[in-house]
Amino acid sequence: MARRISRWGRRLALGITALLAAALVTPVQAGSRLLGTGGVTQIEGAAGGGLSPWGVLAGTASDTEVAVTVAASEAWLDDYGLRVRGVGVNWHDRVELSYARQRLALDTLGGVLAQDIYGVKLRLFGDPLYHPWGSWSLGVQHKRLDQGQALARAVGAKSTQGNDLYLAGSKLFFDAVAGRNLLANLTLRSTRANQGGLLGFGGDRDSGRSLVAEGSMGLFLTPAWVVGVEYRQKPDNLGFAQEQAWQDLFTALFLTRHLSLTGAWLDLGDIAGLENQRGGYLSLQLAL
């Protein structure tokens, strides 16, 4: 297993280096949507904030363009460390395909959990700037717990893979607060995932699907700098430990059309019986 992880890590590092080199060396054609309207890469690989997928698609590609995003994210919590590597492709601002690998280091309990997340997001209609209702998308995330299956089963999970379905909407309100533009996002998700899937799917307390709500608001202090809050409700399927909503305060800087940096302060509640998991989050996204 360890060999497999390092192979994945090497491959992704190589890919990121190649894309970074391409972005710096060649005058790559960027997408044409306004900076920031594709959000950043959320922890499951979709375009969004840090925790939630948004109703917009990755990068800044419009109807005649293709965008590719690559992201590396790290979260440092009290008893855990999360590492995410993600890649997304936006085809004509209509369909987004994404892949993410999450690796959760159990610093206190010992061991590592890892899962692969394959995502598809279809933009149904709208635009965050021009449509009165904003931009609305339907998404699926197929999650496969790859490392830590035995642990997930041991704590009561019914399955080690699952599919999240979600509907997400994003709308930019111009001149909303102190003359600045406010981006509001709402996501409704049907899921069986425990702690996003890292503790498996379904549980001894509740084995079925739950409908959960996620929301975020970001204020663009400048066209390239946004600050905001996120909230993500989660199911509470496992009897051995309670699961709470995730929330964060975030800021993202869109340095160029090709490079954004996101920082956040996370409050992920209790995880696997260890209480009040809080900490910092950093995410770097390259977009082509």
């Binding site: 044409s32 419009s62 005649t64 001149d175 003359g179």
Partner: peptide
């Protein structure tokens, strides 16, 4: 195309950012 419309909006935003006007007026 949407891409052209977006490019034009981006150009207009750049224009407005270059003027001595408030963020509120721009937005």
């Amino acid at each position: 195309h949407e891409a052209d419309f977006n490019r034009l909006v981006d150009a207009l935003q750049a224009t407005l950012l270059a003027q001595p006007i408030s963020a509120s007026a721009r937005n």
